[in-house]
Amino acid sequence: NHKTIQLAHGAGGLLSMNLINEVFLPYFSNESLNRLDDFALLYSDNKKLAFTTDSYVVDPIFFPGGDIGELAIYGTVNDLSMSGGVPLWISVSFIIEEGFPIDDLKIIAQSMKRASDRSNVRIVTGDTKVVPRGACDKIFINTSGIAKVSQKYSISGYNIKAGDQIILSGTIADHGMAVMTSRNNLSFESEICSDLSPLNDLVQCILNICPEVHAFRDPTRGGIGVTLNEFARQSQVGIVIRDNKIPIHENVRGACEVLGIDPYFVANEGKLIAVVPNMYSEKVLDAMRDHPLGKDSAIIGEVVSNHPSTVVITTLLGVKQILDIPAGDQLPRIC
């Protein structure tokens, strides 16, 4: 119903889904794409590969805990890791605004190199375009990546079964609130740090002790609220989570309270949600807590068969409420 592209179309919520379903799927529709997982699974002479792409337009480009370069590498490494695969190769393409300082570009390139070393992937191809001043906001980066996936895993948002447990690998809303409070530097000086980090090693640790994982997803744009709703719709199951089980840092909660933001829909850049069969959940939880990126892991809820494609949250007072997808990004509010 919108005639022009809105910011909300890029926020990972309802409008983003409508854009995909109404504009892109009718033209691009094919069996690999239609699954709309974080990655496409591709098969060529009995090899299984995962392939993904993402663009990064964060503002500000340098934020507490990272920068747009690191974000561009880890974002694609994490999407690929959600297939259970081992990320191998990455392409990088830059769109840079005329007048962008080359010293800043060097800092970004160095942090991309560090990030690719840390996730042991190689940047194998790239491209650079420059646009006139004002045609883009400083710098945009797109990265695509390929991972090798073992045949024995079938990890997908369509694979979730009633009875499965939902495990979150740590505190929510760190990245989104780090960016939001650093962008509003007039009234805020917070030391909220982005959780930006590569999840490939954590994923392999989980799969080593539980290859039967049903689904993985890194809850980036739209936070855990959107990811859980995506899972519920893809597998046509109900999901029930408990408000008092969701880990969150105190300073992040403080920022959310002051700005009237619901942390469930705020971006994370170093967290994953694992959906595992009930009998393996304690074993997986222990393994995750032993890993440096999973020390705050928690079982936050379970999959049920009633109210399919709806996520319900049990509030602090024990009442169950629907947790629905917002239209677009949340805006700070005063009332």
Partner: peptide, 22 residues
């Protein structure tokens, strides 16, 4: 206002009215 911003108007969100003065 959000739609107007997407059409190019300079519309900014403030947390405190004092930010508008700034």
């Amino acid at each position: 206002l959000l739609n107007l911003r997407s059409q190019g108007a300079d519309i900014r969100i403030v947390y405190s009215p004092l930010e508008s003065l700034q």
